[in-house]
């Protein structure tokens, strides 16, 4: 019998994403959250381009989401997988949703429950691939041995991120330049209000006034 994970790892390369949505459809087939996709397919900057990026849970070594949970509902198992909130405990406060450095957990308002990507634990725990990585046609989501990635990709994996002063190490790998040992995560360079007073109403998009709130509170059943 094949064991859990069996030497395989998850590799994420958003730059290869073609926006086909196959991962979103496949994700909803997962046994631990049937019918509800947990993967995010994000437009990087919708106003200026159509580039999309898939975001799965990075499964942090010291998960911020679990540490800010007031109800001890988020647990990390021996494999390092950070699971969806325990159903009896989750009080739907959305601390995890707002604190996750990668913006991963989803607050299912209808269910009063936080749900998130658990790397298809029903599949990976018995040696199968996660749904999204199985169907991704462009290799933006890859699950397999690291030897394969090192041999066939120009980019190389890192699993360390520098968020300002905070270092975050993860189970999932991000593909980046071979010279880097950690992915530098910069925010200031991408803020559009440099040198101006912060005026959210100038920034927000007409016609989508609650887009960010919808990203935190998922009200779809």
């Amino acid at each position: 019998m094949i064991g859990a994970f069996d030497g395989n790892e998850f590799f994420l390369d958003p730059s290869r994403c073609i926006g086909c949505q196959a991962c979103v459809q496949a994700c909803a087939e997962c046994g631990t959250h049937r019918g509800v996709p947990m993967i995010h397919l994000e437009y990087v900057h919708r106003a200026t381009g159509v580039q999309t990026a898939p975001v799965v849970c990075m499964h942090c070594e010291d998960p911020t989401c679990a540490r800010v949970c007031p109800a001890d509902a988020i647990k990390q198992d021996d494999h390092g997988i950070v699971h969806s909130a325990a159903k009896p405990r989750c009080v739907a406060c959305s601390n995890c949703v707002i604190a996750c450095p990668f913006g991963v957990p989803k607050m299912k308002v209808e269910l009063d429950l936080m749900m998130k990507c658990d790397m298809c634990y029903d599949r990976t725990s018995v040696g199968k691939k996660p749904m999204c990585a199985t169907v991704c046609p462009s290799g933006a989501l890859y699950y397999g041995p690291s030897e394969y990635i090192e041999k066939f990709r120009r980019e190389q994996p890192v699993n360390e991120f520098q968020f300002g002063r905070q270092t975050v190490r993860t189970k999932v790998n991000m593909m980046t330049s071979p010279e880097l040992k950690a992915l530098p995560f910069e925010v200031l360079d991408f803020l559009p209000w440099e040198g101006k007073d912060f005026d959210p109403f100038e920034l927000s998009r007409a016609g989508a006034p609650d887009a960010a709130a919808a990203a935190v509170f998922d009200k779809t059943p």
């Binding site: 390369d13 958003p14 730059s15 994403c17 995010h40 994000e42 437009y43 990087v44 900057h45 580039q51 990026a53 975001v55 949703v97 707002i98 604190a99 996750c100 450095p101 990668f102 913006g103 991963v104 980019e155 968020f163 300002g164 905070q166 991000m174 593909m175 980046t176 330049s177 880097l180 992915l183 530098p184 995560f185 910069e186 925010v187 200031l188 991408f190 803020l191 440099e194 887009a211 960010a212 990203a215 935190v216």
Partner: peptide, 27 residues
């Protein structure tokens, strides 16, 4: 340019920033 707390960035933008930062490292 100043100081920003990451808590002032919404989850959707964090996901976008992940891709932007990754893209930047590989040109």
């Amino acid at each position: 340019k100043g100081e920003v707390h990451y808590q002032d960035i919404c989850p959707a933008c964090r996901r976008g920033l992940l891709a932007l930062n990754q893209g930047r490292t590989i040109g």
